[in-house]
Simulated scan of single mutants.
Amino acid sequence: MWPFNRGRSAAEEEVPEFAHFLGDAAAERLRFVLRKRDWDTARAILSTDDPEHRSYYIRIAAGTLGIEKWISGPIREDPDSDLPLLIKACHMVSWSWELPGAATDGTATSADKESMAEHLRRAEAILDEVLERNPRDADAWMYKLEASRVQGLPQVERWRRFERLIEADPTHWFGHEEMLWCLRPDWGGNTPAMFDFARTRAAACPGTHVPTLVVLAHRAHTWHLAKAKNPGKADRSLDLTYYENEKVMNDIWNASQLSVWHDDYRETLLTPIAWNNFAFAFTYGDYHKPAWSLYEAMGADWITEHPWDDVDFFVKSKAYTQDNLDD
C-alpha cells in the first residue's frame, strides 16, 4: 500500500529523462528537418511502409510549430502527392486546440468560435480530398476523428469515422486512443461507453497495444472522479488508492494478458506506451512484481512522459515498487 515507504528521492539515483521520440532516431530527425523546412528529407521519413511508424511520424509532423508557414510550397510543387496535403490538414487539426475558440473556461467569444469552426472546415476539406484519393488512409481518418471531437459532433458521427479508420487499420493505436477520448464524459460521452469501448476493442485486438486502452480508461475515470469531487478546483490530485480496488486491478491484469504479455505480442516502436501505462497501474495496484518487470524492460531509455507527467514522480514510483518487491 502506498504512499512511498522509505522516502527515496530522485537525488539518490541518476535522474532519467523522458524518451520524447520513443528512442527513434528517424522521429527525432523528422522534427529537426521540418523545422529546417527540408521537405525532401521529411518526405522520405514520412513515406515509410510501416503503418505504425507512419502514424507516429505524422503525429510528430502535425505537432511541429511553424509548418503551416511553408507546407503549401510542397503542395504546389507536387500536386499529385497526398502526403503534403495530409500533413497540412493534420497540423491544422492538431493546432486547432490552441485557437481562442477552443477555450473551455468561458472566455471564447462567438467570433472566436466561428473562426475556429472555419479553420476546421478548411482542415476537413483537405482531409476529404486526401480520402477521395485514398479512402483507406487510416491517418487521415484519425484526424477526421479528432476534428469531430474538437467540433463537438454527435457520437454517431464519431463512431462512423472510427469504423472507417479500423476498416483501414484494425489496430491503429492513435485512432483507438482518440476514440477513447471521444467517449470520455468530459467530451460528450459517458463512463459506461468509455469502458465498454476499451474492453471490447481489447478483446478484439489481442497481442497488440490496443488493450492498453483499459488502463487509459481507468486513468480517465480517476480524473473524472476528481473533477466531480472538486469541480471548481483547477489543480486536482488523482486518487491513486483507486487502483487498490480488486475489480479495477483484475480488469487491468486481464488487459495486460491481452497486450504485452500475450503470446502473440511483438515489441514495436510504440511498445513503451504500453509498458509505461501498465507499470503505472501495477505500481499503485500493488502488483509489485509485474510492475518491476516492466520497469526493467523500460530501463533508462523507454520512459514516456505519460502517464507520469513528472520525472520525479516516475523515480519515486519505481522506487516504491522496488522497496515492496518482497511484500
Results as ranks from 00 to 15, higher is better:
A62P: 03
K229N: 11
D82G: 00
F18N: 05
A89Y: 00
W39Y: 09
M179F: 13
D312F: 07
I60E: 06
M92G: 01
Y295W: 10
A62H: 02
S115W: 02
G189V: 05
V315Q: 03
V93W: 04
E267V: 09
A117C: 03
L165Y: 01
G23K: 02
E177S: 12
D286R: 04
V260T: 12
P16H: 02
G152R: 05
G7A: 11
V311L: 13
S96A: 15
P84Y: 02
L99E: 10
D82L: 10
E177V: 11
D40Q: 11
R121H: 11
A19L: 01
G66R: 03
Y284L: 04
W181M: 12
L183A: 05
K233D: 15
S110L: 06
D78N: 14
L86K: 00
N134M: 04
L294I: 08
A102Q: 05
D40M: 13
N276D: 03
P79T: 09
T304E: 03
Y143W: 14
D196L: 08
T268I: 12
K247S: 14
R6Q: 15
R149M: 11
R37Y: 04
P185D: 09
L131P: 00
R219D: 06
R160C: 08
E146P: 01
L22M: 11
H119C: 01
R236T: 12
A274N: 08
E163G: 03
Q151C: 15
R160L: 10
R161I: 08
E118V: 10
L46C: 06
V311E: 02
R219W: 10
W261E: 12
D82K: 03
N230K: 11
D286C: 10
D38Q: 12
K318S: 04
A117D: 09
W253N: 09
P206R: 06
E98V: 05
R219Y: 08
G152F: 10
M142S: 12
N5E: 14
P74H: 03
L153T: 07
Y243E: 07
S237A: 15
K227I: 11
R236S: 05
L238P: 09
E14V: 15
T171I: 05
E132W: 12
H306R: 14
A255H: 03
K289R: 13
M92I: 03
Q155C: 06
A140E: 00
A61T: 10
T171S: 10
L294V: 14
T104N: 15
T64R: 00
W70H: 04
T200F: 07
P211S: 05
K144F: 03
N324S: 14
G7W: 04
M179T: 04
E244V: 13
W275H: 06
M1H: 11
E132V: 13
C90S: 15
A234Q: 13
A291L: 04
E124Q: 15
K289E: 13
E296G: 02
D323I: 08
W159C: 06
V150H: 04
P84N: 07
R43G: 02
A291V: 09
T200W: 10
E146W: 03
E17Y: 12
S256G: 13
K247C: 07
A226K: 02
L216T: 01
A228M: 14
W302Y: 13
P185M: 12
P100F: 05
F195V: 03
